[in-house]
Amino acid sequence: MHDAGKIIPGMIAFVLFVTIPFWANFGKAAPEPKPELPKEYKKCVESKDFMRREHMKLLRKWRFDVVRNNMRVYINSEGQTFDMSLQNECMRCHTQKKKFCDVCHDYVAAHPYCWNCHIPPEEKKGWATKETENLTEEVSSKQPASHH
């Protein structure tokens, strides 16, 4: 082998790079995400399988219908009607975002920006208890960008 001094380190770097998923994780099995389901309600607006796969698409449709088409009632595949509202309808049953939404979202590192505006149930007080008077312009400019 010629130029082994350069090629072998390069080769090792290449192998390490393409095998990152293997060694960077080794021994650290990820816990299976177990979202906490509401106790008093058995069924969501659609089947569990559908919701797991398509909830985002559904919410997107809801959002569009409500905001842009002024339509607020969803009729599911069984003919039942629901108010199309994340904050007021979904979260009526799923009362704990942290134990429901976040479980899977954190697992796959999907961070939809719903909650930048919509208020999850457990945060209803949250920020409001903080002293707002003390927030000077300086301090507040250091707040993390909430766009994401």
Partner: peptide, 15 residues
Amino acid sequence: PFIKEPNPKYPTRMK
């Protein structure tokens, strides 16, 4: 931080 008593039925806006 500037909303003292949020209305839980209505969303806020973001920056």
